[in-house]
Design a protein around this nucleic acid. Structure first.
Lengths: 332, 332
DNA sequence: ATTAAGATGGAAAGCGCTTTCGTTAGGAGT
DNA sequence: ACTCCTAACGAAAGCGCTTTCCATCTTAAT
């Protein structure tokens, strides 16, 4: 491995000067600059980032901690897009992304591990919040996605508004018996979407029977299936259902079809997320779109500002959602 | 930041002993072990990985370089699953994944950057191969996914076999006019699938007109659309088409429907990959499934062995594919 | 009691880099 | 000719850790 010393020897300058050239310090002569750069080229020198990190206490890495209770990790159709957008943004400023593992050595906690790695910042995606305290109380710049955390920054969609949009749309279509397949209430997003649902139905003067709101778990296909089965089992099934997640909605649609009913003729279904799948299924799913692009980008901006000490106080960014009309809802 | 020195001071042992405890060296007393571990706990000590890496020349990071010509990065429905599986496997051995950016500082080449980061190994996913040389000629342990590289290890599906399976199935269904929407021939996988197609059709004694094989580009939905338009424009359109990728197949199906024809009644379509989408679309897509799980896991195993010096010579692992019958193909 | 062997602990060098602070040389100003 | 300033460069310390090699202290064997 060729080091800064090799360059120094080759150019007959000191390692100090070499380092200065490499870091664009002002007080080096043009001549020195040229010689050093040339030697770097010839010897194929690559700086060692560990050494630099050790000396500067800056790693140029951002830690990513991913939701694991969904089981798919980075293959998640929604979060993978968010993170990709996040990555694109931080890349502009020369940061790399470090995906850390949970079972690292003896230290079980991801937080410890991130600390160990010396990342400059952390983005945590849809954790359940148990770990949140460690991050929010530490000096490590952190941004949460999909979950507001006291004493930390976060960015998430306007979930409540999304729930209201869904209900408004369904109501406008003439539906009055509107059900809701909710996400597990341990998740902030789930709670908010349900809140939007309740708010809007109340606003419209609708009385929603208790059984019309059913827990579908962690936004999974299977959860959607089970929830829909229960809805269909009711003495007075709904004519429309607002499902808090697209995958869950697909499960629901499947059950409806299996019951010999049609979507949207017999039951209208509206989802949430707008994952890539949604426009391809049958029928194409009407849904509340989250702006993954913007969520990723905004969280990157927030985090970068924090890292650079530009924004001292924490803040939440709420990203607008949008109703995407496709064919899974129809007028009554 | 508390360091090994703080622990030494607190326990009245030397940093050497502290280090030995932390690294499970044999020759330290139980007493010392206990005291040190306790101090570690009390002072909230976290080892600094940069320092350790600098001293040991081992980073416990694996670099991931992703295909960019597909544009979606890590949100790719197929590769994200492969990488997730890869991640799960390397996590078992305490490695973290580093996703590096391309435009790092002045050094444009990803390879240089990986070198700079001191990763212990690299997994490159569906690059186009131009960069391959740098990796294969260097000492950096590397494994390629979806592309065999001379002087390097690789793992990929049995693409040729997949192509043959598809044709065999279609043939068995009674089809004789079988077309093929291929991937761009700069990709190894595309070439192999096409090769399988040609081999099988020849085997069956079929004569496939030249226009029956059409380039669909980089496996995109749009590419599939355009290709199918051309196929439909033929004086004698095919009764079945083997599409080299699922997303591309969806585009093809869409065009068929738009033309007022039905899948599979009028035209049978079989895809390749089996992405999550495939089973949800209408009709559920018959396809050749790639074992993403196994591909990811195998490449991890291969890479880890290389890193640990267990396997000197390079090798390719070919992962079997499987025909998944759904409803997009029917007997003639 | 004496010695050898094993167990335990520590000094110090080194990993590759940054950065502070001095030193030197040359040019400008008088 | 002399002083003063500035520009250019380098010595050395330090970042936090590992690891070799040597010193010391026990313990068991004779």
């Amino acid at each position: 491995m060729t080091t800064i010393y090799d360059i120094a020897k080759a150019t007959e300058y000191s390692i100090t000067t070499v380092s200065k050239v490499l870091n664009n310090y002002p007080n080096v002569s043009e001549k020195a600059k040229k010689k050093v750069l040339q030697a770097v080229e010839e010897l194929g020198y690559t700086p060692n980032s560990s050494a630099r990190t050790l000396a500067t206490n800056k790693s140029w890495m951002i830690g990513v901690v991913f939701a694991e209770h969904l089981g798919v990790g980075m293959a998640h159709p929604f979060f993978s897009e968010v993170i990709e957008s996040f990555k694109k943004q931080v890349e502009l400023y020369d940061y790399d992304l470090l995906f850390v593992s949970r079972n690292m050595g003896l230290q079980k906690r991801t937080y410890k591990h991130l600390k160990h790695r010396g990342v400059d910042g952390v983005v945590v995606v849809q954790s359940l919040g148990e770990e949140a305290i460690e991050y929010s109380t530490s000096k490590l710049p952190t941004v949460f996605i999909d979950m507001p955390i006291e004493k930390s920054s976060a960015v998430y969609s306007d979930n409540k508004q999304g729930g209201m949009l869904a209900v408004d749309y369904l109501y406008g279509l003439g539906h009055r018996k509107i059900a809701h397949i909710a996400g597990r209430d341990t998740m902030f997003t789930a709670v908010e979407r349900t809140r939007g649902f309740k708010l809007a139905t109340r606003e419209k003067g609708l009385t929603i029977p208790e059984q019309y709101i059913v827990d579908g778990g962690y936004y999974s296909y299977e959860g959607g299936r089970e929830a829909m089965v229960r809805l269909l089992g009711l003495e007075a099934p709904p004519t429309a259902v607002f499902v808090a997640g697209d995958e869950m909605a697909l499960g629901a649609v499947k059950v409806i079809k299996e019951a010999g009913l049609r979507v949207p003729e017999d039951i209208s279904v509206i989802g949430f997320d707008d994952i890539p799948l949604s426009k391809h299924v049958d029928p194409p799913l009407t849904t509340i779109r989250q702006d993954k692009q913007l969520i990723g980008q905004q969280s990157a901006v927030l985090l970068l500002d924090k890292i650079n000490g530009l924004s001292k106080n924490n803040q939440d960014k709420i990203v607008p959602v949008q109703l995407i009309k496709r064919n899974s809802c129809s007028a009554l």
